[in-house]
């Protein structure tokens, strides 16, 4: 009925589901059947003279006590399956999960930043949850885990341990504005050896770009993975910020410190717009919509983005 379980929490959560839904279906079907039976049996045609019954205290006690016991059982199952989620181990891989409108990124202990979450199987993963702007919520359906990411809340953590390799979806579950529906990414679970190989490969930190690489294409990958396109369209439509299409090298009218001026859409302007977005605001747009990407987009990546923007003019 729901996504294949892939974390150590799944069996407990499954038990709670089966227990609660089992009782729920039993009562739903049972009571509905009784109602339908009454509708036929006591229809006025078959049963013109009603009985006079005002109540029955024994029955009231029975149908108070039995449901009470059952819901206490439900509470118990829900509670015991939830305890392990809150018992966060010390040993494990610590990763900081960052959320901003409308993308996730993950910072590893060695400083690398990825847009997908890569983890090894059978290892405790402890996520420090960090939201840059508004509430988000990190939700992995296949793992049955979810925790809100609250701006300003430190020491907000969640953990899990994958017991299956594969690729799973991470959703943002807390409404966070315009492109909330597009705020999702992949969780890649690897065999431990494979993961540590990936982790030891420091070229991922500062990728060596081959001479003949298509820089514009790499730039496009950066723009897509950082979530820029949620606000800056590639086809000229205005979403939240100005479109990327066909502007590079042209003059652009901006408001800087309250003064309107005309500057050139050049490399310096692009770099400043990424690291200090409110410094120059394009006329017709609002300040405060974008937070700095300092520390999230590297200088090399900015250069790639510039190559990509340049290519859009061609």
């Amino acid at each position: 009925m729901y996504p294949l379980g892939a974390s150590t929490f799944v069996p407990g959560v499954e038990n709670a589901f089966v227990f609660i839904l089992g009782i729920a279906f039993f009562f739903l079907i049972g009571i509905t059947a009784v109602i339908i039976y009454f509708l036929f049996k006591y229809n006025k045609k078959r049963h013109p003279k009603p009985a006079h019954i005002e109540g029955n205290n024994t029955l009231e006690v029975i149908w108070t006590v039995i449901p009470l016991l059952l819901v206490m059982g439900m509470f118990y199952y829900g509670y015991v399956a939830w305890i392990p989620m809150k018992r966060i181990p010390d040993e494990g891989i610590h990763i900081t999960a960052n959320a901003r409108m409308w993308s996730f990124s993950f910072t590893y202990e060695d400083g690398r930043v990825t847009d997908k979450l890569y983890v090894p199987k059978d290892t405790a993963i402890i996520l420090n949850l960090n939201a840059r702007d508004v509430l988000h919520s990190l939700y992995i359906p296949a793992f049955r885990v979810k925790e809100d990411m609250v701006p300003g809340l430190t020491d907000n953590r969640m953990w899990f341990q994958a017991n299956n390799t594969g690729t799973f979806t991470i959703f943002c579950a807390e409404y966070c504005g315009l492109q909330h529906a597009l705020m999702y990414t992949d969780l890649v679970v690897m065999e431990p050896e494979e993961f540590w190989e990936w982790y030891a490969d420091t070229t991922a930190l500062a990728p060596v770009i081959p001479e003949d690489a298509n820089l514009a294409l790499l730039g496009r990958q950066v723009v897509e993975s950082k979530g820029c396109i949620a606000c800056h369209s590639l086809d000229g439509t205005v979403v939240i910020g100005p479109s990327f299409l066909g502007k590079f090298g042209d003059p652009v009218r901006v408001i800087t410190a309250g003064e309107e001026r005309e500057i050139l859409y050049d490399e310096e302007y692009v770099r400043r717009s990424i690291y200090d977005p409110d410094y120059d605001i394009t006329v017709g747009f609002r300040p405060g919509q974008m937070l700095s990407y300092e520390g999230e987009v590297s200088e090399e990546e900015v250069s790639l983005i510039i190559e990509f923007l340049r290519s859009l003019n061609e």
Partner: peptide, 21 residues
């Protein structure tokens, strides 16, 4: 009844974590 019984699933902690939002 459907609304109330599904509320039980949401009231239990472990199942709520999966279904919340």
């Amino acid at each position: 009844m459907v609304g109330g019984l599904t509320g039980l699933v949401l009231g239990a902690l472990a199942t709520n974590v999966h279904l919340h939002d």
